[in-house]
Design a protein around this nucleic acid. Structure first.
Length: 255
DNA sequence: ATGGTCGGGAACCGA
């Protein structure tokens, strides 16, 4: 079965592209990020007609995550524990198709230094606490989403031009490494150890035609999930379509 | 050349 993560950058503008991609690739579980709409305003009917159940944690104008699934999903949580004052919709977690699946939209953190970067690092600390708890449980777990972290310089086209960006700061990378060190596997990098793979190209400055990309959309697999991995990748061609998101879907196949 | 482009929603903020 295929499990995917797709930052759609606005479900309203992206619905036709999302439906095309669902029909073309038929994933079993999809985490969506940046739906940028309220929970009640999600296009439930169109997604149902495409053959998917939907769990939605929306927010007006910004952020917003959702889980689409062929089989019904049982919601576990829609907030990342650790800060009751955090009102940003960046997390939804469910049991579905025999897996524990979390969809996350990690804070961008720019500009850094500053309060947005502090929020990013605090959020990553909360993520790692939750991840350690999930890793201690039974069965396969997948943490999929827009992590807004390039793990290594090999994960972006122009590291020198991005050296002050929150996505590549040592603190951001250290938190991501700490997550991996718990026992999580970056599915795409594990499947393609030396390949140049990007999942995001800025709308500005002709980044797509120049292939100035970044790899920031990740699927982190627990050991039980890694044991079942047969393939992983990104659907790069999606970026070249009309009215494309600035991200493309990232995915892993489990046997 | 210190810009450039999107989405949401109706002026700017976020990325």
């Amino acid at each position: 079965m295929r499990i995917a993560s797709f930052n759609v950058n606005g479900i309203g503008a992206r619905l036709p592209r999302l439906l095309d991609w669902l029909a073309a690739t038929g994933p079993d579980i999809v985490g969506l990020q940046e739906i940028k709409t309220e929970t009640e305003r999600f296009p439930y009917d169109a997604v149902r007609e495409a053959g998917y159940h939907a769990l939605v944690h929306g927010q007006k104008g910004f952020n917003g995550v959702a889980i689409l699934s062929r089989e019904p999903a049982e919601e576990v949580a829609r907030a990342l524990p650790g800060d009751d004052a955090d009102t940003q919709s960046r997390w939804i977690e469910a049991r579905v198709a025999g897996l524990h699946f979390a969809c996350l939209y990690l804070p961008n953190g720019n500009p850094q230094p500053g309060p947005k970067f502090d929020y990013k690092l605090a959020w990553m600390q909360r993520l790692n606490t939750r991840a350690a708890h999930l890793l201690a449980g039974e069965g396969p777990v997948v943490l999929a989403g827009d992590y807004n972290v390039c793990p290594l310089d090999a994960d972006l086209a122009r590291p020198e031009a991005m050296r002050d960006d929150a996505l590549v700061q040592p603190e951001s990378r250290a938190a991501f490494r700490a997550l991996a060190a718990q026992g999580w596997t970056d599915a795409i990098r594990a499947r393609h150890p030396h390949a140049e793979i990007y999942s995001y190209w800025d709308y500005q400055a002709g980044a797509w035609p120049k292939n100035w990309g970044l790899r920031i959309d990740h699927l982190m697999l627990s050991p039980a999930a890694v044991d079942r991995m047969t393939d992983a990748g990104v659907d790069r061609s999606v970026r070249g379509e009309e009215r494309a998101s600035d991200h493309v879907p990232a995915w892993v196949d489990l046997g």
